[in-house]
């Protein structure tokens, strides 16, 4: 049986697994961005807060994914959600914090102080400064962080198949359990391809969100 035959025969279950994978990663990223971008903006404004926040995010990031699951399951079991979607989504959200927070902070701090001083001096409100000046200028950097978080999340979501969260990792789980290499490879190739596609797609988004004024250089003289 070739890989193509396998894909043909299991196309339905592959699609379902892909859907589960995307749903898990998508929901986790949405929440992670909603939490991480404001946190990054918050620590960019007060440098004294940056140390502890980044340290905490870094510690979470350092804990291996399967170990994090192993630590979380007994805790979540107390509310009857030991395995499945919830621990997976929580782990993904936690892992995504470091790249999102760090990139948001770096991108916001890279804005020249004179630009913000001018905005204030011309009579923009703090809200207008953030929405019209800071955010557009920081957007490419923030998306770069989301991009790192996304590729990482796809990988962690694959491991989450072991705790019953479904997704493409299921093929690897079953393939290894039944020593059916074709199934393992199909899962691995699927996850690798998904990662590459998302990586490239978010790269395009990042380029689109880069203001034209930051892309053009020189000229005209």
């Amino acid at each position: 049986m070739s890989l193509l035959d396998f894909l043909h025969e299991y196309d339905q279950s592959l699609l379902i697994a892909l859907g589960e994978h995307l749903r898990l990663v998508g929901i986790a990223l949405l929440i992670a961005v909603a939490a991480g971008v404001p946190t990054g903006a918050w620590i960019a404004r007060g440098e004294h807060r940056a140390g502890p926040v980044l340290l905490a995010a870094n510690i979470i990031q350092t804990i291996p994914s399967i170990a994090l699951f192993g630590l979380m399951i007994p805790i979540l079991a107390m509310v009857n959600h030991g395995i499945g979607f919830l621990p997976a989504v929580i782990a993904l959200i936690l892992y995504a914090q470091l790249p999102v927070i760090r990139n948001t902070r770096v991108a916001l701090r890279a804005i020249p102080p004179a630009t913000l001083d001018a905005a204030r001096g011309l009579g923009m409100t703090e809200r207008q400064i953030f929405l019209r000046v800071a955010l557009p200028l920081a957007a490419p950097g923030i998306v770069a962080g989301i991009r790192i978080a996304a590729t990482m999340s796809i990988g962690v979501a694959a491991v989450a198949a072991y705790i019953g969260a479904g997704g493409l990792g299921i093929f690897i789980v079953r393939g290894i359990q039944t020593t059916w290499d074709m199934m393992t490879i199909a899962g691995a190739v699927g996850i690798a391809l998904l990662t590459l596609v998302v990586e490239i797609a978010l790269g395009i988004v990042q380029r689109m969100l880069t203001p034209k004024g930051l892309r053009v250089r020189g000229g005209g003289r």
Partner: peptide, 8 residues
């Protein structure tokens, strides 16, 4: 490429 995929 995720590590699990690479190991697989």
């Amino acid at each position: 490429i995720p590590s699990l995929a690479l190991l697989a």
